[in-house]
């Protein structure tokens, strides 16, 4: 199923785009598995998703843990820890 992905900050820069649509295989069930699968898409993706511990995620604009299932998600965002204020 097509999934809309958003990237922010250095994740966006490493990947080379802030937005893409992907169609992961059915074996990709969680955000963590999605990140690992994305890392295989190219050298930019590999650099962005190499260290899962440096990444945070949101599904449909709500923060989620990496173990969260992506079933039913429309939009998944992957980004570094936030640094506003």
């Amino acid at each position: 199923m097509a999934l809309s992905l958003l990237y922010f900050a250095w994740v966006r820069e490493a990947v080379g785009t802030g937005q893409e649509t992907v169609d992961p295989p059915a074996t990709v069930a969680t955000v963590a598995e999605l990140v690992d699968w994305l890392a295989g898409r190219g050298p930019g993706h590999a650099a962005a998703f190499a260290e899962r511990g440096r990444l945070r995620a949101a599904i449909d604009q709500r923060f989620v843990a990496m173990e969260t299932p992506i079933a039913g998600a429309r939009e998944v965002a992957i980004f570094p820890p936030v640094t506003g204020g």
């Binding site: 922010f8 900050a9 949101a58 980004f79 570094p80 936030v82 640094t83 506003g84 204020g85």
Partner: peptide, 11 residues
């Protein structure tokens, strides 16, 4: 809370 919860990134 804003500093750790709101999705902003500084460069």
């Amino acid at each position: 809370r804003l500093k750790t919860e709101a999705p902003f990134w500084k460069r």
